[in-house]
Design a protein around this nucleic acid. Structure first.
Length: 607
DNA sequence: TCAGCCCCTG
DNA sequence: CAGGGGCTGA
């Protein structure tokens, strides 16, 4: 819900929040630098929203402001420069009405505006275009927030690094980033409150902040806070960044490298966490070590990261997420789990009849979005998202890979070994039928969830469809026999039953449709109604249940279809369809026509 | 009471 | 295809 603010305010300290306070100076901001200051023009509502979200977020852990959020959206609600702002509990705790501090913020803001502008004009800063759909109302404010947030760190880093020469700075970029990456977990751990002291530890160390790394380059310009030099500094800073695109590029390269490493580690961690790929005693240990950041951190991270990359993701994220009610938390958590399996067992798809044509496409799309989002996250980091460190990138990656997994509906052409040994992942179960169950981040739970994460896949669905050619009303026993590779729970059973219910629905709809067509077409005799393999009705059914047409539909099904069609025809022709429950009689007839499912369905796993 | 089913909706 | 509401029979 506050994912947007989780991103943009990530790391926004209470001090930064205080900068949201009424600031008459805002209206006097130098707007001569085209389009920079407009982001500061917010309506009071946006400000309020952001304050609130900042408040909620800051109570969790502090993160960094992501430049992603600094959308330079020039036209939003201009004319609200002097918008009134409502103090929030958080902001009040950090000197909300400290006007002198505000002046300082205003001055800093003005400086950073130019910095940001310089950065946006450099290649690879596309994240400046980030606009999240759900945050459009406040992203302008986020930009402002960004602008306000940066200077304080900038100031620190400037002081810290003012003695470092430029050459050293250049050389230290990589080291800084690396150190900060390695430091991030600790940062997350340490940030749980609103206090400045609880902020990421890079505040205390000049060498552990990516932001520092990003800002120390111009930290030398920050040695003086005197506003009379602001104009000069603005120009100089802009020139600095604009004349040093190679620095940006360097940072980008470094970050790319680090991101790759983070991804690799993430994969390793996932593998380690897979219960069946390791000896039992190691499971929990590995999980605790690699997979279970503190619950709140974990949740926040995923949220934040998804927000970071949210701009170009909505297509995926807004995709119909069936069975999941609490999208933000549950879905992501599920994805994270799914992703682990997805990665670990992402076998190349054999030309199995059980594969869906659309799967690859979806995967490619997701991959695209993923890459784009990752780039955004990367740039966000580059822009100073210091807290978006390794862990978060892992989560981010996990999130996105799990989006892929999700988009494939757990489809795996080849079932992984553990699929038979264990049951349904409670994550899936939660997705299936327990959407309101809160997911615990406890590693053991997670692990168990993972272990059980072998629910129904697209291959199961495919198999069920083929089974429909034999039985329209399979009993639970038959289902259990045919899906013996799934641990049956009430949810799984219900799911399978629901599938067959849906199959029947489609089946009967087709029957009714064709029966009515036959009547309209003037078919006088029910004997004239036949269902052959060339018939349109059969093609429609076959397309639905046997899309790949790689399954030899039994003749018996044709017979049943023909009987059904005739039943509908007769019922409609005699006007039984006026009775609301006229189909029930037909259902009763068809129900008795079920045949045995071939042994192959019972012997082979669904995958 | 609950599983199972149908129907409707998205 | 899923979710949910309503109905029904055990």
């Amino acid at each position: 819900m506050y994912s947007s603010s989780n991103i943009c305010l990530d790391g926004c300290t209470t001090e930064h929040l205080s900068s949201l306070q009424p600031d008459p100076m805002l209206s006097n901001l130098d707007v001569s630098n085209s389009g920079v200051c407009v982001t500061l023009q917010q309506d009071s509502e946006n400000i309020k929203m952001l304050q609130e979200s900042a408040y909620y977020n800051s109570s969790g852990d502090a993160g960094s402001v992501c430049s992603d959020q600094l959308e330079l959206n020039p036209s939003r609600d201009a004319g609200h420069l002097s918008a009134k702002r409502h103090p929030s509990p958080a902001s009040s705790s950090c000197g909300l009405h400290d006007w002198s501090l505000n002046s300082g913020h205003q001055a800093k803001r003005a400086r950073v505006e130019n910095i940001i502008k310089g950065m946006t004009s450099s290649p690879g800063m596309h994240c400046m275009d980030v606009t999240t759909n759900q945050h459009e109302e406040s992203d302008g404010m986020q930009g402002s927030e960004m602008i306000q947030e940066l200077p304080s760190h900038q100031e620190r880093s400037g002081k810290i690094h003012s003695q470092v020469t430029r050459k050293q700075l250049e050389g230290q970029h990589f080291r800084h980033l690396r150190a900060s990456f390695n430091h991030v977990d600790g940062v997350d751990d340490a940030t749980g409150g609103n206090n400045e002291e609880m902020r990421p530890t890079w505040n205390n160390s000049p060498d552990t902040s990516p932001r520092d790394a990003c800002t120390d380059s111009y930290g030398e310009f920050e040695s003086s806070s005197s506003r009379k030099y602001q104009g000069w500094k603005k120009v100089k800073l802009m020139n600095y960044f604009q004349s040093k695109p190679e620095r940006i590029k360097l940072m980008a390269d470094v970050l790319k490298y680090e991101l790759s490493r983070a991804v690799s580690r993430s994969v390793d961690a996932i593998f380690k966490s897979m219960p069946l790929l390791q000896t039992p005693p190691n499971i929990e240990g590995n999980v605790k070590t690699d997979m279970s950041p503190q619950p709140p951190v974990c949740r926040d991270n995923t949220l934040r990261l998804s927000c970071c990359g949210n701009a170009e993701v909505p297509d995926v994220q807004t995709e119909a997420l069936s069975l999941v009610v609490q999208k933000p938390q549950l879905e992501r958590a599920e994805k994270f789990i799914l992703q682990s399996r997805s990665r670990a067992h992402h076998h190349p798809k054999p030309p199995t009849p059980f594969s869906y044509d659309s799967s690859l496409h979806e995967e490619e799309l997701s991959e695209k979005d993923h890459n784009t989002a990752r780039q955004h996250a990367l740039r966000c980091f580059q822009d100073g998202c210091s807290e978006v460190g390794q862990t978060k990138f892992e989560m981010f990656d996990a999130h996105w890979n799990s989006v892929k997994a999700r988009s494939k509906v757990n489809s795996r052409s080849v079932r992984s070994p553990q699929s038979r040994t264990v049951s349904v992942d409670p994550m899936i179960l939660q997705g299936l039928c327990l959407p309101h169950v809160k997911i615990e981040s406890d590693s053991l739970v997670k692990n168990n969830l993972y272990m059980l994460n072998e629910g129904l896949t697209t291959n199961h669905l495919k198999k069920a469809k083929l089974m429909f050619f034999y039985t329209r009303y399979p009993s639970s026993l038959v289902l259990k026999m045919c899906f013996h590779d799934v641990q049956f729970t009430r949810c799984i059973t219900s799911q399978l039953i629901k599938w067959f219910s849906n199959f029947r629905e489609f089946y009967y709809i087709q029957m009714e449709k064709f029966a009515r067509h036959a009547l309209i077409d003037g078919v006088a005799n029910v004997r004239g109604l036949t269902v052959g393999r060339e018939s349109e009705l059969f093609r429609a059914l076959n397309m639905h249940y046997n899309k790949a047409n790689d399954f030899q539909v039994p003749d018996r099904f044709l017979e049943v279809a023909e009987i059904t069609l005739r039943e509908f025809y007769i019922a409609i022709s005699v006007g039984k369809d006026r009775d609301p429950s006229w189909k029930k009689a037909i259902y009763k007839v068809i129900c008795k026509l079920d045949g045995d499912v071939p042994a192959e369905f019972k012997n082979h796993p669904s995958g």
